[in-house]
Design a protein around this nucleic acid. Structure first.
Length: 146
DNA sequence: GCCAACGTTGGC
DNA sequence: GCCAACGTTGGC
């Protein structure tokens, strides 16, 4: 799950009183669909994007499965979408809980050099999804890079 | 700041 | 339903 650290970093999540937050503002159908497939207890990498060193910085746990994103209903929100309604919500959030922050970031540049990761959605050219699946093998490979 | 690669929008 | 125009993402 990607976030721009200027806006919301893993340090922000860790600093929250319950180290828990809802992942707001996903406005892409593919990313939304991946989020809706998440199950309670699933883990996710926290990825910092659009920053000096993009890469994976830690791990989160899903503590609440997908429910409607209320920010889409709020005209004052930057995430407002008039086409999303209470009766027919278009966008969803999951609730995530901080699990751990890596001692050092695993940079995108390093992920790119790993043979087992070449098929990762993240490494596909032109990839712009903010949420994407990670296979068990990929997960293990990434953990071994710490 | 540039630009490639997308997704979305809206006219037809 | 096609497709050009436009906006956005995100690495570099």
């Amino acid at each position: 799950m990607k976030s721009e650290p200027n806006t919301f970093s893993i340090d922000h999540l860790q600093a929250l009183p319950k180290q828990t937050d809802q992942w707001e503002g996903v406005r892409n159908y593919q990313a939304r669909n991946f989020m809706r497939k998440m199950a309670l207890g699933d883990q996710a990498f926290f990825y910092h994007s659009s920053c000096e060193i993009p890469g994976i910085v830690g791990i989160m746990e899903i503590v609440e499965t997908a429910y409607p994103d209320m920010t889409a209903f709020n005209p004052d929100s930057p995430y407002y979408d008039p086409k999303s309604t209470n009766e027919n919500p278009r966008w969803y959030v999951v609730k995530v809980h901080f699990l751990k922050k890596f001692k050092t970031i695993i940079p995108l540049s390093k992920l790119k050099t790993q043979a087992p990761l070449q098929e990762m959605q993240l490494l596909k050219p032109g990839n712009r999804l903010s949420i994407m699946p990670v296979s068990t093998q990929e997960w293990q490979c990434i953990l071994s890079l710490k």
